[in-house]
Design a protein around this nucleic acid. Structure first.
Length: 492
RNA sequence: GGCGGCAUAGCCAAGUGGCUAAGGCGGAGGUCUGCAAAACCUCUAUUCCCCAGUUCGAAUCUGGGUGCCGCCUCCA
């Protein structure tokens, strides 16, 4: 693919769509705020992971070399508290949930980042940065802790568009007399008894919340890297503070060229979050739904829109995903994937090839316009609609028609499977993935019933046949008579 | 109180100055089928929360209003 196409990104910093110009031509550096691993990953975490996975694959498709860094904030109050409850070492708890997070994302088809830096492994870099900030007068030590001096950074508030005075007015921050100013935030927190701590020039303690992302992103991606991502809920104070620290430290702006924030996942119109307790884990969802379907559901929404998560919501979306995949799977059986050029050589209908190229164009244009995955997905539906007529008579299709289907298949694989990851070769029918010892018996019995039913149908005893089918339906087993034979599946 | 976002058909959801307002689900009719299911075809918003304005022209821009959400405290 070429890098000719212009890519537009909505930049939170400017609140405008801007043309993407990388720091280095042909390369993209991306830092995505990862999780604080003190519990299982939920769907609210899956959304940014899936989105940035798609974004990365799209950039790659456009010819960029992509470097993706995602941190684990493995030192945090929440981790310490949870570990204490369970009588565990905080770092051990964090390691456990970090692993669980990665495994959950693997299952969702999220490609691993290039680096997963952990706070606990970057204490030195963090201390070095804090020292630098103190030397520049942007931070000060107080009672064993170190705070960032917000007054030393005149542009404070530029990301979240807040004025310092206003922040002060509405502050619900408890007064900490160690701070010079209410808005100042901790870079280094003095250790309280019984807390994990690391030695530092200011005594034993641990990093404050925001400093790790600055230290680690600068370390792995350098100054003025391209894209920093995360949930909308991180804009303030987290990302605001990152900008202040980083730009004060390096003396260079911008710290980040494009800020991308994804919308939140809601349940009952309320933000899904661990602290509210209204979350559904990725594992729980994957027990009922196929990973490519979860991606489909996420990508059906524009990344900046809120996404309501509910079972009813998913159920109605499932049909579309099934239809897309059924068509895809039919195509797989008809032809190997072919380039448009090869398909044309083999006599593919021009009309079909035009549809294939049109889909590709529409898809890439949608993605290049602020990663409009919903529109991109729509283009795939249009493609299968255009291919459908050729699929109908596939058994008698000419070599040229099959080649045309192969060209469409190649595009589906590259865009739908490769970039979006919403296609699968697995059975997409209801409950198809069910297994287990008891099902072994059930399967045998269903086969037996269907054998009897087949005999009834052969004898034109449709009353018996229909009775068996409806009784099975009541038990949650769907029977379909297709031209090629009867098939059945569990209803979800 | 401050900042930001959202409001498009029964539902989900694109579109942000101008060809017929994407796509999916659902619904209606049809093809196929012993009947169903699946699949396919056709139809399904003269109109984009309300009011005023800018413009030859607005769902799209401006002002005002209403409702909802997020952030200002840990948070993807």
């Amino acid at each position: 693919m070429s890098t000719e196409r212009e890519i537009y990104i909505y930049n939170t910093l400017t609140r405008r769509k801007e043309r993407f110009e990388p720091r280095t031509p042909g390369e993209v550096s991306i830092y995505v705020c990862g999780v604080t691993p003190y519990d299982h990953a939920h769907i609210g975490h899956a959304r940014p992971s899936i989105f940035f996975d798609v974004l990365r694959k799209f950039f790659r498709e456009m010819g960029f070399r992509v470097t993706l860094v995602q941190n684990f904030t493995d030192i945090a109050d929440t981790i310490i508290d949870r570990a204490r409850e369970r009588g565990m070492e905080p770092l051990e708890l964090a390691r456990h949930y970090s692993e669980a997070y990665l495994e959950a994302m693997d299952r969702l088809g999220v490609e691993r980042a290039d680096v997963y830096p952990k706070v606990s492994e970057h204490i030195d870099a963090i201390i070095e940065m804090i020292q630098g900030l103190i030397e520049k007068g942007a931070a000060y030590e107080s009672q064993g802790s170190v705070f960032f001096r917000v007054d030393a950074f005149p542009e404070y508030g530029k990301l979240s568009n807040q004025r310092k005075e206003e922040l002060m007015a509405g502050a619900r921050i408890e007064v900490d007399e160690a701070k010079e100013d209410h808005l100042d935030f901790a870079l280094w927190k003095r250790a309280k008894p019984g807390e994990p701590s690391w030695p530092s020039p200011w005594g034993p303690g641990r990093p404050g919340w925001h400093i790790e992302c600055s230290a680690m992103s600068l370390k792995y991606l350098g100054n003025s890297f391209d894209i920093h991502g995360g949930g909308l809920d991180l804009i303030f104070p987290h990302h605001e503070n990152e900008i202040a620290q980083s730009e004060a430290y390096t003396g260079e702006a911008p710290f980040v060229r494009y800020w991308i924030h994804n919308g939140l996942v809601t349940m009952g119109d309320e933000k899904m979050s661990k602290s509210l307790g209204n979350f559904v884990t990725v594992d729980a969802v994957l027990q009922e739904y196929h990973p490519t379907f979860v991606r489909y559901a996420v990508l059906q929404h524009h990344y900046r829109s809120p996404m309501e998560f509910s079972k009813g919501q998913l159920e109605t979306m499932k049909r579309g995903w099934q239809r897309l995949n059924r068509a895809y799977q039919e195509m797989l059986e008809i032809s190997p994937p072919l380039s448009v050029e090869r398909a044309r050589e083999q006599g593919a209908p021009e009309e079909l090839l035009a549809a294939v190229k049109g889909t590709q164009e529409k898809f890439l244009r949608a993605m290049a316009d602020d990663f409009n995955t919903a529109l991109a997905l729509a283009s795939l539906f249009e493609l299968i609609r255009d291919v459908r007529p050729y699929l109908a008579g596939a058994s008698s299709a000419s070599a040229g028609e099959k080649a045309g289907i192969g060209a469409a298949l190649a595009v589906l694989q590259r865009l739908g499977a490769g970039i979006l990851g919403v296609l699968t070769e697995d059975d997409v029918d209801e409950g198809a993935a069910r297994d287990g010892a008891s099902d072994e018996l059930v399967r045998g019995l269903v086969e037996l019933v269907l054998e009897i039913r087949a005999n009834a149908r052969k004898a034109k005893d449709f009353a018996t046949a229909d009775h068996l089918r409806s009784r099975l339906q009541e038990l949650g087993i769907v029977v379909e008579d297709r031209p090629e034979g009867t098939r059945w599946s569990f209803k979800g």
